[in-house]
Design a protein around this nucleic acid. Structure first.
Lengths: 235, 235
DNA sequence: AGAAGGGGTGTACGCCGTACACCTAGGCAC
DNA sequence: GTGCCTAGGTGTACGGCGTACACCCCTTCT
């Protein structure tokens, strides 16, 4: 479904324009949110924009939550994944600035991203690549883990853990995709496995000590500025 | 208005319980959000909780936005402002962890806080005190400024500038409270003044270079972890 | 030709925030 | 005491929202 094949439409009378598709709906929603702000994006308004009746949208998105999920998925997938140069710090820096630039292009995206509970493939892919850069740069698995949490904030404003608060929901497919996770996101799988050892808590994102991770990042900043304190001001 | 004086009520018949007040409404809303989640807090449900008709709330809060403003104001004002010991890094650490602890007590508060556009007195007061700690600790005005932005994120998940996007609105009172700002929040006023010099842009929070501030914090983290990289893992 | 089903439609329900007119009870001036 | 004023609770109503459900039409496959 929702491949962009666009089978025979636009007969010259122009009665029905190009038909809908999940992708067309999502992109129209993004354009609408860009133009009018996310708070004024409604199913009815979007349908109106697409010159279609509101309920037509529900043939392509499950509900408004799904619409928002799809919107951020597209935005995140547009993050420029620059090629690695081998200079890990430089590479990480580039990736994160690319993410920031991408989210800034759609000012609503940060807020929506934070309101989502589950990770999408594009997010996982981005995070996995970033994790890989740290590991390749020689950071230990634990340090990489801590750093990912510390940066989560910076990248798109998260403060809570990335995998938090996913309700049980459909256990069947969930278990399946959980099993498939290591294959697609090997780096994430590695730090998750390591974290699991120290504290096999329930649910996803097990073994993450939020408080410790928060303090780690805080101390990194405080110690860093303390070191700068003795020199002249930066700007 | 809304002082807690509670003039003669509760006549033994118990017809009208204690009457409403802005404070009672706000605290009931906080309790409701704590118990049921912020997304299910509605004016109607809250009114029902207070055994009152929905429109009665509007005698005490202007609208739902105002209700949310009032809720975060209370939460933020409950942040434990520990006495300064003179050890600036320790003091800053404690204040920030106190803020985190307070916001974590009300899981909805972070999201609501981020959705607000304007600063409230309690927020300004907290930020002013923190700024004061940095300055007293010997950080330059510029470094303090950068650090406040870097920490904004850590404290309650902000990624955007703190003062951003306040619409023009009521110029009369706005100008007045803007003029009164230095008296109440001297430390904030100092870094704002310094920032104004380098780039007198329009609106509030002038002279803040978002991109530079983001990169400052990012580099602090990356350089910090790079330094840790050469030693053994932390946990 | 006839079945199947993907995709747009129309109607309707229950929730939301809140404008506006109203009523009522206490405090005050006289 | 009488009459007014006002703060605060009430009732009704409106427009907007997300979306369930029954429909129907048009394409495609057999």
């Amino acid at each position: 479904m929702d491949t962009g094949l666009e089978t025979l439409s636009d007969q010259n009378a122009g009665t029905r324009r190009t038909t809908l598709s999940r992708d067309r709906v999502l992109r129209a929603a993004i354009a609408y949110a860009d133009a009018n702000g996310i708070e004024s994006l409604s199913m009815r308004g979007l349908a109106n924009e697409l010159e279609v009746v509101p309920m037509a949208l529900y043939k392509h998105v499950a509900n408004k939550e799904d619409l928002l999920d799809g919107m951020v998925e597209i935005v995140v997938s547009e993050i420029d994944q620059a090629a690695a140069t081998g200079e890990w710090k430089h590479d990480v820096r580039l990736r994160i600035l690319a993410a920031r630039a991408c989210l800034l292009r759609h000012s609503w995206s940060r807020a929506v991203l934070e309101s989502r509970s589950a990770m999408t493939p594009a997010m996982l892919s981005y995070l996995d690549a970033l994790t890989g850069l740290f590991l390749a740069g020689g950071l230990s698995v634990d340090l990489t883990h801590q750093m990912m949490h510390a940066l989560g904030n910076r990248m798109w404003g998260f403060s809570q853990e990335l995998f938090a608060a996913t309700p049980p929901k459909d256990t069947e497919t969930l278990r399946a995709q959980k099993a498939a996770l290591p294959a697609h996101y090997p780096n994430l799988a590695e730090i998750a496995k390591a974290a699991m050892h120290s504290d096999p808590a329930s649910g996803r994102a097990p073994g993450c000590d939020d408080q410790a991770e928060f303090e780690f990042a805080l101390d990194l900043l405080l110690d860093g500025v303390d070191r700068l304190r003795t020199r002249q001001p930066t700007r």
